[in-house]
Design a protein around this nucleic acid. Structure first.
Length: 115
DNA sequence: CGTATGACGAGCC
DNA sequence: AGGCTCGCCATAC
C-alpha cells in the first residue's frame, strides 16, 4: 500500500491503543515501545495532539511518578482519574497510581516479532 | 533552516 | 522533602 505514514505519532498511538484496560503506562514506557527511549516528551506532545473522538486510551498514559498532568481539578486530570477508576485503577491519597501494581506488563511488545 | 514549545525523565541543589 | 534545571526527541511556526 502507499498509505504508510511513518509518523511517530501514529506509532505512539498504536502503542497506547495496546494498553489493556485496568493498566497504565508511563510516557517513557510508551516512548520506549514506540522506538524512542528518550522521547517521553514526544509522547506527551502526541497525546496533546489527540482529537476528542480518538480511539486512543490516552487516559492510561501517565508520567513516571504515577500522577496525571496538570493540577488536580483540571478537566483533563479529573476525566483521566474518572476513566481510570472505572477500569479498576486505584488512586493514592495524593492522587497517585501504584505503577508497581497497575503498571503495564507489556514487557516484550517492543521486541515481539509477531506483534 | 533555525528557534521555540511541550500532557516528560532524571539529576542536582 | 521539595523545587529547579538540563537533557531528549519530534512538531509547529
Amino acid at each position: 500500500m502507499v498509505a504508510e505514514a511513518p509518523s511517530v505519532f501514529e506509532q505512539i498511538y498504536r502503542v497506547v491503543r495496546c494498553i489493556p484496560p485496568g493498566r497504565v503506562a508511563t510516557y517513557g514506557q510508551v516512548a520506549r515501545m514506540a522506538g524512542m527511549p528518550r522521547g517521553a516528551r514526544t509522547v506527551g506532545w502526541a497525546m496533546h495532539s489527540l482529537p476528542e473522538g480518538t480511539d486512543v486510551p490516552w487516559h492510561r498514559v501517565i508520567n513516571a511518578r504515577g500522577t496525571v498532568h496538570g493540577p488536580p481539578g483540571s478537566h483533563g486530570a479529573l476525566l483521566q482519574r474518572l476513566l481510570l477508576e472505572e477500569e479498576g485503577i486505584a488512586f493514592d491519597e495524593q492522587g497517585r497510581i501504584d505503577l508497581e501494581r497497575y503498571g503495564w506488563c507489556g514487557l516484550d511488545w517492543a521486541e515481539r516479532p509477531g506483534r
